[in-house]
Design a protein around this nucleic acid. Structure first.
Length: 420
RNA sequence: GCCGGGGUGGGGUAGUGGUUAUCCUACAGCCCUGUGGAGGCUGCGACCCGGGUUCGAUUCUCGGUCCCGGCCCCA
């Protein structure tokens, strides 16, 4: 077996054991979203390349799996879900009563260098509150993301920033509009020197915006201090309103004015969560309020959304402690001879109907080999069926851990197994 | 795109400029046929790819590729 075809770089085969833990996480996520009134949406894995260019700029093409289809159309595998969802909203849901609350779990693709917590195919789970044009909607998104992490028991640091504040400050300091996005990305990076140069010497005080991070109330006071010489008050008022609403939810993110996405469509509150134990890529969630509808040619409409790195969430939970899945089937049915197969199959069906995960020999192995096989698979219970059992309408139930074996009626066996 | 560390059967490993390339495990089969979860036997199967040095490369060297981690980026 020299060179077999291997999986493409940056992709993973998710084996049964891992799928079982992922499924548990997924189930919890769906449950919470639905209990908050969000409904699931699924959009195409590929879209017109133009969609992503319009959202994120020409440069992202380098990071995309882009291709030309047989009709000579430029296409790309989705690198994230929000663009598609806003597109679908404009195409299909415009007239729906606002806000439109949606959630999704979608595999996404980015042509990047893989490293810990970063793959070329990865899964994002997230929500959007389309047309939720209020601090209350922003707060709901943040509170929901917090509820998801709580439900999962995910240790994290939840941090809140605000682009309205940063843009207002930039304006007041006199940063030209064309410099602003670059400034935001410098702030995001925490490049103090570069930020100082953009602000200029006379705005030394504004530089302390970079130090506004920490527990909410104290950090808010510091932010007010930083902003006091300026009249960038709109953003601050919005941020206060979001925090006030969050307080009603009893959710208290840290304040971090260093969260500053450079993209224009982000409007106000932005937030991220980090989980310990993930190495260099420790951000598990990011979100914010945005205005994408007009970018895609619709009317202006503000929305708020967040996206979790599903794989990272699973990885972080695994780092925290085990997430056992259901594992191998609980019951293995071992017919002693083919002559009792009919009865054995009917027994297996009874077990399955009772909700048990049951498996029956298909290799025609002898009873000895079947016991051996069941053991090596790690099956918990073995049911031996031979002619004696069939005649009496019974089964022999062997506990593979203790080795104890009892012969009892099928009904009793089902009842006994059902209790475990 | 860049940097560092790695690549020997499915998994884990030993080792070497010339060997039938080591061992464990897994897997498959046989013995046995109502419990052989054992034991025994047999089988299966590897030096990442390509160029160079050399009489000879799995071993040395260069390039590529993939894996692990990091940088850049992070929609």
């Amino acid at each position: 077996m020299g060179q077999m075809i291997r999986r493409p770089k940056g992709t993973r085969d998710l084996l049964p054991g891992e799928m079982e833990t992922r499924r548990r996480v997924e189930d919890a996520i769906r449950r919470i979203c639905e209990s908050w009134g969000y409904r699931e949406i699924s959009t195409p894995v590929f879209e017109h390349l133009q969609l992503f260019k319009e959202k994120s700029g020409e440069d992202i093409v380098e990071e995309l799996y882009a291709f030309t289809d047989r009709g000579d159309r430029g296409m790309a595998l989705r690198p994230e879900a929000t663009a598609s969802i806003v597109r679908a909203y404009l195409q299909e849901m415009r007239a729906d009563p606002k806000p439109v609350r949606l959630y999704y779990l979608a595999n996404c693709f980015r042509y990047e260098q893989p490293q810990s917590g970063r793959y070329r195919e990865f899964w994002q789970f997230g929500t959007e509150v389309l047309g939720g044009d209020t601090p209350e909607a922003d707060a709901e998104a943040i509170a929901l993301s917090d509820a998801v992490m709580r439900e999962l028991g995910l240790e994290n640091s939840l941090e809140l920033g605000h682009l309205g504040v940063l843009r207002g400050l930039a304006d007041d300091v006199g940063v030209p509009v064309e410099e602003r996005d670059r400034l935001l990305s410098l702030i995001d990076r925490g490049d103090r020197e570069a930020v100082r140069q953009v602000f200029g010497d006379e705005a030394e005080g504004a530089l302390s915006i970079l130090d506004v991070r920490g527990e909410a109330e104290e950090a808010l006071r510091r932010l007010e201090d930083v902003l006091s010489p300026y009249d960038a008050r709109d953003g601050l008022e919005d941020l206060r309103a979001v925090m006030r609403e969050l307080e009603r939810f009893r959710v208290g993110p840290k304040l971090n004015m260093g969260i500053a996405r450079g993209l224009e469509y982000y409007t106000g509150a932005v937030f991220e969560a980090y989980a310990p134990g993930l190495g260099a890529q420790d951000q598990v969630m990011g979100g914010g309020s945005y205005e994408l509808c007009s970018v895609f040619g619709g009317d202006e409409m503000r929305s708020t959304g967040f996206a979790f790195g599903f794989d990272r969430v699973v990885q972080a939970l695994e780092a925290q402690g085990e997430l056992p899945g259901p594992g191998e089937p609980a019951v293995y049915v071992a017919p002693v001879t083919t002559s009792v197969r009919r009865y054995a199959i009917s027994v297996t069906r009874r077990l399955r109907d009772a909700g048990l995960r049951a498996e029956i020999d298909v290799k025609g192995r002898g009873i000895g080999a079947q016991v051996k096989h069941a053991d090596s698979k790690g099956v918990a219970q073995l049911i031996v069926i031979g002619e004696r059992e069939e005649e009496a309408g019974e089964v022999s139930l062997k506990d593979m851990e203790s080795g104890e074996q009892v012969t009892l009626s099928l009904d009793d066996a089902v009842e006994l197994l059902g209790d475990r």
